Computed example of a mutant assay.
Amino acid sequence: MTRVVRFHRTGGPDVMQFDDLPVGDPRPGEIRVRVEAIGLNRAEAMFRSGAYLEAPRLPARLGYEASATIEALGDGVKGFASGDPVSVFPAFSMNDYGVYAAKAIVPAYGVMRRPPGASAIEAAAVWMAYLTAWGALIDIGQLSEGDAVVIPAASSSVGLAAIQIANSVGAISIATTRTRAKAAALAVAGAAHVVVTSEQDLVAAVNHATGGRGARLVFDPVGGPQVEQLAQAMSSNGILFIYGALASTSTPFPAIAAMQKALTLRGYTVFEFVRDKERLARASAFIEAGLAGGRLKPVVAKTFTLDEIVKAHVYMESNEQLGKIVVTVPH
């Protein structure tokens, strides 16, 4: 038996509870792991509250991302051995698997070796953030030296990863934040420009930062009415990625700016490419090289223990954090 976090009804953080469940043996293509640290993601809070891309099948598990040690391999799993330190990354549905637990069964296609030299806490803060940013900015957007990218809600772990990735290829990172509270921290985190949207004109600020050209890419997890301004701040033939829906209101299509500038507005999630072995290999090589060279470094905002999972979700929904929230799993 192992302790597993599940929710039997949708709602706020307090719907999560601990259930003692049998772990069992991994089936063909699966791996059983002992979880050491869990990286929290906004998607998990949305899934728990019934507002995610898919509806939960109750009672439902949670958790896309973890550092773990392999305990057992299912038939057909190659390239791993019992005792290997690994990372579980988001490549599956939480209706099928979840890593908010002391031990978990996960699909082999959602496991990779832990980055060399990374602690369990650091490794739990890597993959969702950097894979998500790499897929949009590098793989699809072809971000390169001299390009500008606007990064709304830049204090999230994905936003900070996007800043670092943009900087690593010589692009201009323009972070946005609603209030001044995180502006200085975003500058310290490497943003070339920080726009406080409650105090500054977003379009004017981006035009100033880019010498009037506008940004070729926007990487937005929020949506909502601000998409109109983001489109106006873009250069011709740009791509506006929307990879989240944090806004409480609907997202308009900025038809005039899109037509004037031949813009592409594109929905995006990390799941587009993580089951594509070739693209995943390119992503992991880029990320591991960046980690080894110091160009990429995950920012951990705060750690909790698994017993404090409700507190961890309350903190995540407070929006106070800068970077990744990690939950450790004592054994």
Results as ranks from 00 to 15, higher is better:
A81Q: 08
D84T: 11
L202Y: 03
L160V: 15
A255K: 02
S168A: 02
M128Q: 10
V329P: 05
P22I: 12
M316F: 15
G146S: 13
S198F: 13
I163N: 05
K78L: 11
D96W: 00
A124H: 01
R114S: 03
F273D: 03
A162P: 10
A104Y: 13
L62I: 04
I325W: 09
G238N: 00
E228N: 09
V158Q: 01
P225D: 10
A191K: 12
V326Y: 13
V194G: 07
Q321P: 09
V326C: 10
I325L: 06
M234N: 04
R213V: 14
Q321E: 13
R3A: 00
W127L: 08
F304N: 06
V5Q: 11
P59D: 07
G83K: 12
Y64Q: 05
Q142C: 06
L246E: 09
A43P: 12
A192L: 07
L217F: 06
I325A: 00
A191N: 11
F271R: 12
A289H: 01
L240R: 00
E288V: 10
R3H: 04
N319Q: 12
V15F: 13
F271C: 08
L265Q: 03
A101I: 08
D19F: 06
E145V: 09
G238M: 03
V169G: 01
F286K: 02
D276S: 05
Q142R: 08
P330D: 08
R213N: 12
F219W: 07
G267P: 10
K297C: 08
A312S: 12
Q164A: 06
V88N: 05
M234G: 02
W127N: 15
